[in-house]
Computed example of a mutant assay.
Amino acid sequence: MPQRIQTPQASPKSAVQRAERVDAQRNRLKVLQTADRLFGERGTSVSLGEIATAAGVGAGTVYRHFPTKDALLATVLDHRLSQLSERGAEMMRRPDPERAFFEYMEYLTGQALANRAICEALASRGDWQEPSKLEGVCVVDTPLGILLQRAQRAGAVRSDLDPNDVRALLAGCVGMSQAIESPERARRLSRILWEGLRLERNFENRNESLEPSGLRNEIAVTERSCPVCGTPLPETATGRPAKYCSAACRQKAFREKRKTT
């Protein structure tokens, strides 16, 4: 008669060890999340003891996983780099070049404003401009350059910008947030700044600044000039002044009006 194969039972000791490993992993994640938040809010001068207290764990638990603050900060920065890399790769897969570029810029701005100390630490390590040891490419500059070039080829972004210019504007957003001390206002002004990079929007603003509607109407009434090109309007047989000097100017004004409606 065949013997029944018995499944070996886990010993109580191994079950305890697994529970300890799960608990240790949970504590490590809690320490990392707390450190990420405190480094972003208060800067990298936060001590390991403060992080342990905020995470609700003992100081020994922190030192067991991260013997020094530099080791903890390096792990936090590597985690941030991984997030930046994933978002950059996602944006480069987007089919719409214009939307991908501006969404990426808004994401980078949000990260910089919410975690200024962490972004400064990443910049000081050179991870924004030098190949990452984990990824082998620049996790910020590589997608930034590709997305900018795609948007410029699509005619959505000014052609006289390069990645260095955009990175300088990003740094300006961070400096602006320090000056006005209002994260919400900084985000609003940052969105206005990125909108200013749109090629079509720049042309519209330039036309409006050179020929504001109020000034065009005033010229048309006082000097009887064409509101499009400024040419003096000739007298008509009916005595009523013409609104435009030619059919071409009339069509141009009609097209401009359609753009704004």
Rank of each mutant, 00 (worst) to 15 (best):
S132Q: 05
V228N: 08
S159K: 09
S213Y: 10
C229M: 00
P97M: 02
A220W: 05
E223L: 13
T142V: 07
N115Q: 14
P183C: 03
N205H: 12
A156Y: 00
A151V: 01
Q111M: 09
A89G: 07
W128F: 13
R153C: 08
Y107R: 10
C229Y: 01
R188Q: 12
F101D: 00
T222Q: 09
R93T: 09
S190Y: 00
T231S: 07
G88L: 00
A121E: 03
I180Y: 06
R158N: 06
G155P: 01
E195Y: 15
L108H: 08
L233I: 01
R187V: 10
K133G: 09
L199P: 01
P227I: 01
L189G: 06
P143V: 03
A154M: 00
P183K: 00
D165R: 03
P131A: 05
R93G: 11
V140H: 03
L169H: 03
L122P: 00
L169K: 02
P95F: 05
R150D: 05
A156P: 00
M176V: 11
G110S: 07
V174Y: 05
G126L: 02
T231P: 03
N115G: 11
S132L: 05
G175I: 05
A117V: 07
P212I: 00
V221H: 05
N164H: 13
A220D: 05
N164Y: 13
S190H: 02
A151D: 01
L113G: 02
L197G: 03
E86A: 15
E218M: 12
P227H: 02
V137W: 14
I146N: 10
L193M: 08
V137Q: 13
R116A: 12
I118N: 03
C119I: 14
Y107H: 15
M176L: 14
P97K: 01
G230S: 04
R188F: 13
A89L: 11
R99M: 13
L215R: 13
M105H: 05
T222M: 10
F101H: 03
Q111S: 11
N207R: 09
D96I: 01
I146Y: 11
Y107S: 11
T109Y: 05
A123G: 12
S159W: 12
